[in-house]
């Protein structure tokens, strides 16, 4: 099996991860998965749970990379392992809490807060709808908005990278946001949320 290591420079690997490049994800899988899988499987986990844990860990890590102030002082695998370990112990604690709160008849003594769950579901549905709408705006707009709002890059840097004038991109960002909002308002499912 070929073990591709497209990014030998750690900084470039992090940049590629920020861009969501599949080959960067693959490199991280090949380098870091075994350790995390072994940790989960040695602690009551199955292979399939280990795979889910790794995916969620990677998403948490990508979330951290959004913060421009974030600096990685250890290697990626060590960092992922630490996240995975915390997540896994949290999961185990959660599972054991469910077991411990069963009454004599085996019914849970603490019922989940349905109101909160429904609120959470509605919140997620709304953002999923917005995500679908956002996918429909122009590529240029998506790039500007993602880099500005999600990756928190300064407009000047985005303008330079895209080869655009600062004033142009400043106005363009507002136009893009305006277009995005208009599309949200016009979506047939929006009012139901």
């Amino acid at each position: 099996m070929s073990k591709e290591v497209p990014y030998t420079d750690p900084k470039k690997l992090l940049e590629a991860l920020r861009r969501g490049e599949e080959r960067a994800f693959e490199q991280v899988y090949r380098s870091c998965y075994r350790q995390i899988s072994s940790m989960a499987r040695s602690n009551s986990g199955t292979e399939s749970q280990a795979q889910d844990l790794f995916q969620e860990t990677l998403l948490v890590f990508l979330g951290k990379l959004r913060d421009p102030a974030f600096e990685l002082t250890s290697d990626v695998c060590t960092f992922l392992y630490a996240i995975a370990q915390r997540k896994w112990w949290k999961q185990l604690r959660k599972d054991s809490r469910v077991d411990l709160t069963l009454d004599e008849q085996g019914h849970p003594t603490e019922l989940p807060d349905v109101g909160n769950l429904e609120e959470k579901k509605a919140f997620e549905e709304k953002h999923r709808l917005m995500s679908r709408v956002f996918a429909g705006i122009s590529e240029e707009c998506r790039r500007i908005i993602v880099e500005f709002y999600y990756q928190k890059k300064p407009l000047q840097e985005i303008a330079e990278k895209m080869g655009l004038d600062y004033q142009y991109i400043r106005v363009k960002k507002h136009r893009c946001m305006n277009d995005y909002k208009k599309r949200i308002r016009a979506h047939p499912d929006f009012k139901g949320l």
Binding site: E26, L59, K126, H127, M130, V133, F134, Y149, I184
Partner: peptide
Amino acid sequence: LQKEAILGVACFVEENYRHAIQAVAGR
């Protein structure tokens, strides 16, 4: 609405990440 729209952008990027990760995991 504008605040929600910005949160929608995060959701869009995370879904893209998730799809990319799932594609890699599938392969």
